[in-house]
């Protein structure tokens, strides 16, 4: 063998020596710039090892010359962000809630912050769109158990409902059957009456009449003579189209028999005042704010 592999006559390039069905492959040389690029990347990687954190050691790692660390960089970014928010957060705390709404800069800041704080802290019960669920009120509508003004909402978020905080909002729906306050028949009558308040069809007229008396005796003290609810006790309006736990007869009977005592936690010890104010303004902005 005088030559390693045959040279292609036309291109003058050596072949790889492989042949398939008479087709041969040229071993075309790579361009020099390609080689230089590869060398450059190798040199770059060595520089990178020296400058940046690179090699794992037994209990630590090579830190690199400029001391970069992604954790420190995150902390920097977070403290920069906190510093950038400082003015707006301070304004949130020092301004009256009702006045913030006319200060566009602070108000828009509050709404955005409130939206994200809501997603983190509130959406688990109230839903991501604050649409609620049975037992967890819808915050978009115009019915408020404890009041829909910014101040009422602020207090509710701060101290909670039936929470373990001393200033919590308190109001009990007793278990009329379990505590033997009413007979099952009376509960049936009062349930019929409650349904009649919101003009439900197919009711037993006699039961409604009987239920009205029971209601006046047992329920009106919290829900009011006209059954429109009392915010003092968080007692809902029973005459409107919105039901807290459900508006079918079975649910109403259950509510009267077993009572209801859902809890909203107090946030005053978990969130800072600025965040609670953001949440207040956000909830107020959802469409039902008073």
């Amino acid at each position: 063998m005088t030559e390693k592999f045959e040279k292609d006559e036309i291109s003058g390039t050596q072949t790889t020596g492989h042949e398939w069905d008479g087709i041969k492959e040229l071993d075309t040389p790579m361009p020099r710039w390609w080689l230089w690029t590869m060398y450059a990347t190798i040199i770059w990687s060595i520089g990178y090892w020296i400058v940046m954190p690179a090699w794992p050691l037994v209990s630590s790692y090579t830190a690199g010359m400029i001391g970069y660390s992604s954790r420190a960089s995150l902390e920097n970014v977070m403290s920069e962000a906190a510093a950038a928010h400082a003015t707006d957060r301070a304004a949130l705390v020092t301004t009256e809630l009702s006045e913030i709404q006319s200060d566009q800069q602070t108000y828009q800041y509050a709404l955005r912050g409130g939206k994200s704080a809501f997603a983190v802290n509130c959406s688990q019960c109230h839903g991501s769109g604050a649409q609620g669920a049975p037992g967890f009120p819808n915050l978009n509508d115009d019915e408020w158990l404890w009041g829909g003004s910014v101040d009422s909402i602020y207090e509710t978020i701060k101290y909670g409902i039936r929470s373990d905080h001393d200033d919590t909002r308190l109001g009990d729906m007793p278990a009329f059957l379990d505590d033997e306050l009413l007979e099952p028949a009376q509960i049936n009558d009062v349930a019929e009456y409650v349904l009649s308040l919101s003009q439900q069809p197919d009711l037993d007229a006699e039961a409604v009449t009987r239920g009205k008396e029971v209601f006046a005796a047992e329920c009106a003290s919290c829900h009011g003579e006209n059954a429109k609810g009392l915010r003092e006790f968080g007692a809902p309006n029973l005459t409107d189209a919105i039901w807290f736990y459900g508006g079918d007869k079975e649910t109403i009977v259950r509510t009267i028999s077993k009572g209801r005592a859902n809890v909203m936690p107090a946030w005053v010890d978990r969130l800072d005042d600025a965040t609670i104010r953001q949440l207040t303004l956000y909830v107020h902005s959802l469409g039902g704010g008073e």
């Binding site: 769109g129 819808n138 978009n140 509508d141 409107d240 189209a241 919105i242």
Partner: peptide
Amino acid sequence: NPLFVTLSDGSIR
């Protein structure tokens, strides 16, 4: 989210 809201007077928002 929510798609619509029922108000206390039964209207839809």
